[in-house]
């Protein structure tokens, strides 16, 4: 495309010697018309003579204060809710860890792993291993899915003695 210098407007406006804009007649007429239109509009829709600006400012301030005050209790409630949820999650995870003997065994100390066992003793140990220590689990602390999982485990392993006490 051929360069068209008319696309670029010169930055400087034409000025008279006294620094005023040197407007051509048509632009001066437009300027006069703009001033006329503004005066006409303002005559049609005059401003309030006694605007209650101070009162409006007071009202706006008090509305903002109320909004801030209304936010405070809800923020506290949300915080308390989050804290109780975190506590619940912590309690459930701790109780699950306590109730799982296999996990407790798997987290044995490195010292116990390092001890050497004689082959005879190991044989006797292996025969006595299935007898797991009885654990007590409070069903009240379990959530629905956790309880469902517990019943699944009990069904899968019917030999394990289980009893429910109220």
């Amino acid at each position: 495309m051929r360069f068209d210098p008319r696309l670029i407007q010169p930055d400087d406006a034409p000025l008279r010697n006294d620094g005023e804009l040197d407007l051509p007649d048509d632009l001066a007429a437009l300027a006069g018309q703009l001033a006329d239109d503004a005066a006409h509009l303002s005559a049609c829709y005059p401003a309030d003579r006694n605007p209650q600006v101070a009162l409006a400012a007071e009202l706006a301030d008090s509305a903002e204060r109320l909004k801030r005050r209304a936010w405070r209790p809800s923020a506290l409630a949300v915080g308390a809710g989050l804290a109780s949820l975190a506590a619940l999650v912590l309690t459930v995870s701790l109780s699950l860890r306590d109730s799982d003997p296999v996990d407790a065994q798997s987290v044995a100390s490195p010292d116990s792993l390092a001890t050497t066992v004689s082959p005879v003793a190991a044989e006797t140990m292996s025969t006595s291993l299935p007898a797991l220590a009885p654990t007590t689990l409070s069903l009240g602390e379990l959530s629905g899915p956790e309880m469902e999982a517990l019943f699944d485990l009990l069904q899968r392993d019917p030999q394990r003695t289980s009893s429910i006490a109220f």
Binding site: Q9, D12, A13, L15, L21, L23, L30, A31
Partner: peptide, 8 residues
């Protein structure tokens, strides 16, 4: 001045 001129 430029904005006024170009605005008109």
């Amino acid at each position: 001045k430029s904005r006024i001129f170009h605005g008109l």
